[in-house]
């Protein structure tokens, strides 16, 4: 897919995840971004696991590091540093923050998997050639990174490593990074060998936008307009502390439902040609 429709599709859930407070809007952004990622070409699993895992971690941690809210849910034993007095508001805020993190990561992942990295490179090369190349290569190398991760785990298991141990698992991150850097170095060398960095770069002609890309561009623009309007009108606002506000306000429900519907429809169109 061309970068423009991909950016317009994944931009609204990302914007909502960053700027909205309403749990309904955050849920709509999370579901929409997840559907877009699910419709994107594989590999998707690593992105999904990372995004949802990060969200769950934030959700789980917040009640124990936050000291706010008036509605007591659970009183635990005293543990230094941690707040074991868990309130409904802390749990709700944690859920919202978790969805915020997950939706942001899912939206970025969906963009990475949807946007054609070659076209992205070309589009950005005019304004920031080095950054564009790094971004495009990172996109290209992510599937290889996933394969490397699986290979390193298999190799460690066959050498009697206990993968259930967090220390062992964490110890494999360094080699994974080293493999990734090594591969990047190889690609950089291959690029230099093929004349990258020369003084006068030209571009091969590219195809125009397809019909479904125009449809997705329109859907993405509509979703972006919807989120922008909701932010301006304040329908994405929500109060978590000291007590929870009303999440079921009609404007928030309608807006979130519209965003979810637009992104669901777009995900269907993305998947349709395949």
């Amino acid at each position: 897919m061309k970068p423009l429709p991909a950016a317009l599709l994944t931009g609204p859930p990302l914007l909502a995840a960053i700027a909205a407070w309403s749990p309904l809007w955050l849920a709509a952004a999370t579901v929409g971004a997840a559907l877009l990622l699910a419709a994107a070409p594989p590999p998707r699993r690593l992105y999904a696991v990372t995004a949802i895992g990060s969200g769950l971690v934030v959700f789980a941690i917040n009640p124990f590091v936050s000291v706010q809210g008036l509605t007591l849910l659970w009183q635990g034993p005293h543990i230094p540093i941690l707040d074991t007095q868990v309130t409904v508001e802390e749990v709700a805020y944690g859920a919202g923050a978790g969805m915020r993190v997950a939706a942001s990561a899912l939206a970025v992942a969906a963009f990475v998997r949807l946007a054609d990295p070659d076209l992205l490179l070309r589009a950005l090369a005019r304004v920031a050639p080095r950054s564009a190349m790094i971004a495009a290569l990172a996109t290209r190398m992510l599937p290889a990174l996933e394969r490397d991760a699986a290979g390193i785990v298999t190799a460690a298991r066959t050498r009697a490593a206990r993968m259930s141990s967090p220390r062992t698992a964490a110890g494999l991150l360094g080699p994974l990074l080293a493999s990734s850097l090594e591969r990047s170095l190889g690609v950089a060398e291959a690029m230099e060998a093929r004349g990258y960095g020369g003084p006068r770069r030209t571009r091969a002609p590219e195809r125009g936008m397809r019909r479904e890309e125009w449809i997705l561009t329109a859907a993405g623009a509509a979703a972006l307009g919807l989120v922008a309007a909701a932010l301006v009108l304040g329908t994405t606002d929500f109060r978590y502390y000291d007590t929870l506000g009303d999440p079921w306000r009609p404007a928030a429900m309608a807006g979130a439902a519209a965003l979810a519907a637009l992104l669901t429809g777009a995900a269907t169109v993305v998947r349709w040609p395949r």
């Binding site: 093929r194 571009r203 091969a204």
Partner: peptide, 15 residues
């Protein structure tokens, strides 16, 4: 096409 682009070949020739 990548190498040809780097060497600055005319766009029409690259493809």
């Amino acid at each position: 096409a990548f190498g040809l682009e780097n060497l600055g070949h005319p766009a029409g020739e690259i493809a």
